[in-house]
Design a protein around this nucleic acid. Sequence first.
DNA 1: CCGTCCTGCCTTGCATGCAAGCCCTACTTG
DNA 2: CAAGTAGGGCTTGCATGCAAGGCAGGACGG
Lengths: 215, 215
Amino acid sequence: MEAIRPLTRTLLRDRAYASIRDAIVAGEIEPGAVVRDAELAERLGLSRAPVREAFARLVDEGLLESKPQSYTRVTQVVAADVRDAAAVVGAMHELVTRVAVPRLFAADIETMRAANERFAAAVAAGDVDEALRADDQLHDVLVRVSGNGAAAATTARYTPLIRRLERRRFAEGGNCRSAGLHDRLIEACAAGDVDGAVRVTAEIWRGLAELADSD
Amino acid sequence: MEAIRPLTRTLLRDRAYASIRDAIVAGEIEPGAVVRDAELAERLGLSRAPVREAFARLVDEGLLESKPQSYTRVTQVVAADVRDAAAVVGAMHELVTRVAVPRLFAADIETMRAANERFAAAVAAGDVDEALRADDQLHDVLVRVSGNGAAAATTARYTPLIRRLERRRFAEGGNCRSAGLHDRLIEACAAGDVDGAVRVTAEIWRGLAELADSD
DNA sequence: CCGTCCTGCCTTGCATGCAAGCCCTACTTG
DNA sequence: CAAGTAGGGCTTGCATGCAAGGCAGGACGG
């Protein structure tokens, strides 16, 4: 009997993308560093083709920049760019919140509460990875319930750029995102208060824009 | 003496992308039709590599869908998907309007007015291509002035999906976008009335969402 | 006659080879 | 000595070859 293979075969380009993206967001590959497709291909144990497809996506997301026939490198963490991305992602979250809140089930609220608890615990423990993961999970509930695929894709596309700055800020000392704002968001969602939830969402993302500006 | 080459060499993948996208939006390749990279490569006179990169972008934009190892085909025009895209693009336009209006110069207003005149004339003449081009140009002023690259990219990414439906509706009879709404938008911009401009923008995109629903 | 399994073709995914463009260096020349 | 310029190396962009997986059609069994 063979070992069971994954239900959805993971394409090499997707693995390459996730791997490189995480390395950039985590700061393992520093801003300004040039990345060569051949080199990364060898390090990941595959050929240039899937790595190049991953590069294309990362350029799209603003984590890489490329000059034709010349070089590809990790972008600098530029305050203005992060602020722009935050404005876009914030608008997406406001959009999905407006749609999702009236459709939330009790289980969804529960998922958000659980994620926020894990978030608060991780922040207290100083575990950045876990904190950001929990934060993602919390907000993802609304994105998923809204059912808007374009909004979900846009959110996923620009969140890494923002995360990179958040990680850096976190490493420098304090974390901006407060569990308190999350609490207020969850309560508004539980109460079916659309406008209230949208207001809190806007507040959360305004805070992030300020984080970018305090460079 | 040689002919002067373009200042920025156009990459083959970009030409392939633009070419295929336009063909899909124009309906020259019908929804549901399977597209084979080898076939398109031959038709465009280049190899599979750049065509495949174009495919990846078009999948991202929701104009193509692909099943691994199997097929790639043009997506159906699904009302829900168009509505989702319209919600995202609408949110982007509201965002850039809020930022751009206080920064507009007289020349920008003039560009918008000129574009709207061309728009109205094209609608009257029944020239869809020109109408949509003029419409793009009008709204693009605000996108550009806002300076938000992420918002610009997101707008550019999902506009084709919407245009495909608009073209179909146009072919069926009436056009929804009215030059009157554009006039009101321009006047609000000229007056520096941010909230007013945002309100009109929201109204324009609400109309588009209804266009999607009337399927 | 219908359902199932098998087999072969066709597609995409990945690997690799080749060419074009850019950058850096070193040389030449004023 | 400085500035311009030609050449080489190294990168990416594109072309092509190969293999894995899906799907359709047919053969076989019930």
